[in-house]
Simulated scan of single mutants.
Amino acid sequence: MNMTKLKEEVIEYSKTIGIDKIGFTTAAPFTELKNRLLQQQMLEYQSGFEEPDIEKRVDPAKIFAGPQSIIAIALAYPSKLKNAPQSKKGERRGIFCRASWGMDYHVILRNRLTKLEQFIASKVPHARFKSMVDTGELSDRAVAERAGIGWSGKNCSIITPEFGSYVYLGEMITNIPFEPDTPIEDRCGTCNKCIHACPTGALVQGGQLNAQRCIAYLTQTKGFLADEFRTKIGNRLYGCDTCQTVCPENKGRDFQFHEEMKPDPEVVKPLLKPILTISNREFKEKFGKLSGSWRGKKPIQRNAILALAHFKDETAIPDLIKLLNDDPRPVIKGTAAWALGKIGGKEAKEALIKVKSKEKNNEVLTEINKGLSFFE
């Protein structure tokens, strides 16, 4: 079989199904990555959402019999919200990060990878594949970097010359020996804008992230947010784009190539107060198709409470008092108590004093006391 011709055909076909960039690399182990992952593990910088077995993350042969090469794909996503509603007094809004606009990207990329598998299988009947997006064992970034999709930026994103870092990544291990592409040279140079701009100092140094401090990770946690991060989250409901928006490589980049990625402004920049009392069904109907809904409504509700505190939105005080009195979940109840103290005012203080005498949960009591401490 003419492998050069097959590779050309795969590249041509990929363009017809909405793959914006495609690259090929070997299935050799990612030895450099292994050392980095071991260091991250030792420093406790991991988020906990990753595949725990480092061997599987760095060696394609551990998860696929007889791997010969890996195909990496990238799809560019929008970065500008058209007709964005204004966040104003009494009608404050939160924001989902750009990677959670439109339809869940896992669904979009799996669709493209499935079509690519079917095309290759029609050309090579004995072809086998294992495709993955984000939640697979391999590191999407390591594969994309080695396949020449882009370089690994200091902000820990793959940066492509064409689309900046506003790309979703996916990959496919196969038993077909495609000719590998050449990696792209790093263009970050002496620029450290992302490192300086990170709100929590999660970017320890260029290319090293302490995921435990990263707002994108913190917005997805389900428990109480540590005090030091509560005032850093701003109005973010899910994810964080700061290290991307300050990147010079992303300046003026906005790609509206894919219909299913186009955001609904009312969904990705929603009013905060209605989120506080949203039912499971309403949450699923409104936010269910976003990748940012995967952890359910509780983290989004907690983040909405923190956003209202960030805005010092006095019109939210009755809603927060209702949560403090009626919500059965300690995290929501306690965060509401903290937020009432942060917003301040006579009504908030009286509500905290009143509920303190009856509250039995120690975690909630701690938060009530934190709320009351704002009045001292």
Rank of each mutant, 00 (worst) to 15 (best):
S14G: 08
I17L: 11
G18Q: 13
K34G: 05
D53T: 15
V58S: 06
A65C: 14
S69F: 02
A76V: 12
L81N: 04
S87Y: 01
G90R: 12
I95F: 01
I95G: 00
F96T: 00
R98H: 03
S100N: 14
W101Y: 12
W101E: 08
W101H: 10
Y105T: 01
V107N: 10
R110S: 06
T114M: 11
L116Q: 08
E117D: 15
F119N: 02
H126C: 10
R128Y: 10
K130W: 02
V133M: 05
V133C: 07
R141F: 06
R141P: 13
V143I: 10
V143A: 02
A144T: 05
R146S: 13
S152W: 12
G153T: 09
T160L: 10
Y168E: 08
I176G: 03
F178C: 11
E179L: 15
P180N: 12
T182H: 15
T190E: 15
A197D: 05
P199Q: 11
T200F: 01
A202V: 01
Q208P: 06
R213K: 13
R213H: 04
C214M: 02
I215Y: 00
Y217F: 05
T219V: 03
Q220P: 01
T221N: 08
F224I: 08
F224Q: 03
G239Y: 02
G252A: 11
M261E: 11
M261W: 07
P274I: 07
L290N: 05
H310M: 08
F311V: 03
K312M: 06
E314I: 06
A316Y: 05
K322S: 04
D326W: 05
P330S: 14
V331D: 01
K333H: 03
W338E: 04
G345L: 07
E347S: 12
A348Q: 06
K349V: 04
K356V: 10
S357M: 09
N361Q: 15
E363W: 14
K370S: 14
